[in-house]
């Protein structure tokens, strides 16, 4: 790190353009949050694995990415994780990268873990805050099912930090982004796990769960798949995403990709509404960082009430539709 402001490389998550609908490519919100973090630590740079159309480059520049590295090769979509590791390593090999930031989700953490092994670097995952410090970035993690806060520093190699969604705000910081295409020679061992088929899921039209400012989640108390209609209605009234506890996804009342908790998604929205969720420790691990919590549960002893800023002891099937109606009435 001889340069006073080395590059802080953000591995960008994009939603590629869809030629069928004419929709252009977009950058996922957590990557923009990481550009905010990158500006605290050095000179932000972005790495896009896959096509980077003009819209994607423009958005990255608007959020401070001075350089946008692009590795657009079929391998990055055709194999799990490995090609992206090669791509990050290729950019770091050019020198002047002082830190690598990835999203703390399964893929981001795995890319980060392998990059750390390859570079001989320390890695911190699940950072809920990252600030500049003496001797390198200081990362804050929520550990032990989110009940403790730990601060850590990487002391070896180029720090690799996996940053949770909502760890930093998205802030405009426009610069003229320079695109640099990077040719990567993929290692044979990086092309071992081949994606042989991909079945896209129908989109819900709601905000993405881990990035949504409002999450309304249902649990065992919802009682059935049909029962989730009242959860969805409140989510839509608040412009939020729908989540579910493991009890509900195990019953197949709601899609597994919406599960919040230790074995599902971790969310940190401004508002979390827990409907019919008791609040077992495994669930709390996934939503403990929510800033405001509203809980509705029939059981007055449910542990979720200890976390709630507002708790209602009552039947969610009665209360939720009434709340939707109240909101509509006040807006009318």
């Amino acid at each position: 790190m001889s340069d006073p402001a080395p590059q802080v490389l953000v591995l960008v998550e994009t939603v590629p353009a869809d030629p069928a609908t004419g929709r252009s490519g977009t950058v996922r919100r957590p990557s923009l949050e990481q550009l905010t973090v990158a500006r605290r630590l050095g000179t932000p740079a972005a790495l896009v694995c896959g096509p980077a159309d003009d819209d994607v480059v423009a958005v990255l520049g608007q959020h401070g990415a001075a350089t946008v590295y692009v590795v657009d090769a079929p391998e990055v979509g055709g194999y799990l994780v490995g090609p992206k590791v090669d791509a990050v390593a290729a950019v770091v090999d050019r020198g002047d990268v002082g830190c690598v930031l990835v999203t703390s989700n399964p893929e981001g953490k795995e890319v980060g873990g392998r990059v750390a092994v390859r570079l001989g670097s320390g890695i911190v995952t699940d950072a809920v805050d990252v600030q500049a410090g003496d001797g390198g970035p200081v990362a804050t993690q929520a550990v032990v099912a989110g009940q403790w806060l730990a601060t850590s520093q990487v002391v070896r190699g180029v720090p690799v930090i996996a940053v949770r969604p909502n760890a930093a705000p998205v802030e405009p910081a426009p610069v003229q982004a320079v695109v640099e295409k990077v040719d990567v020679t993929f290692a044979p061992s990086s092309l071992g796990a081949r994606v042989v088929s991909r079945t896209p899921r129908a989109t819900t039209g709601r905000p993405e769960l881990t990035a949504a400012p409002v999450v309304v989640a249902g649990g065992r108390g919802v009682g059935s798949a049909a029962g989730f209609a009242v959860v969805e209605a409140l989510a839509d009234a608040l412009g939020g995403a729908v989540g579910a506890s493991r009890a509900a996804t195990d019953e197949s009342w709601y899609g597994h990709q919406f599960q919040i908790g230790q074995t599902g998604k971790t969310v940190a929205p401004a508002l979390y509404v827990a409907a019919g969720i008791s609040g077992a420790i495994q669930h709390r691990a996934g939503m403990q960082s929510a800033r405001t919590v509203v809980a509705v549960n029939k059981d007055a002893k449910a542990p979720i009430f200890a976390l709630a800023d507002l708790g209602v002891v009552g039947d969610l099937h009665t209360v939720l539709p009434q709340v939707v109606a109240e909101i509509a009435r006040r807006r009318a």
């Binding site: 750390a116 009940q147 806060l149 520093q153 002391v155 800023d309 708790g311 209360v319």
Partner: peptide, 21 residues
């Protein structure tokens, strides 16, 4: 490669209002 500088129990949340419907 990582040094933990501090660990602390997350400050407990202020218990909020609970109403019985």
């Amino acid at each position: 490669g990582v040094v933990v500088r501090s660990v602390a129990v997350r400050p407990p949340k202020q218990a909020g209002q609970v109403v019985v419907d």
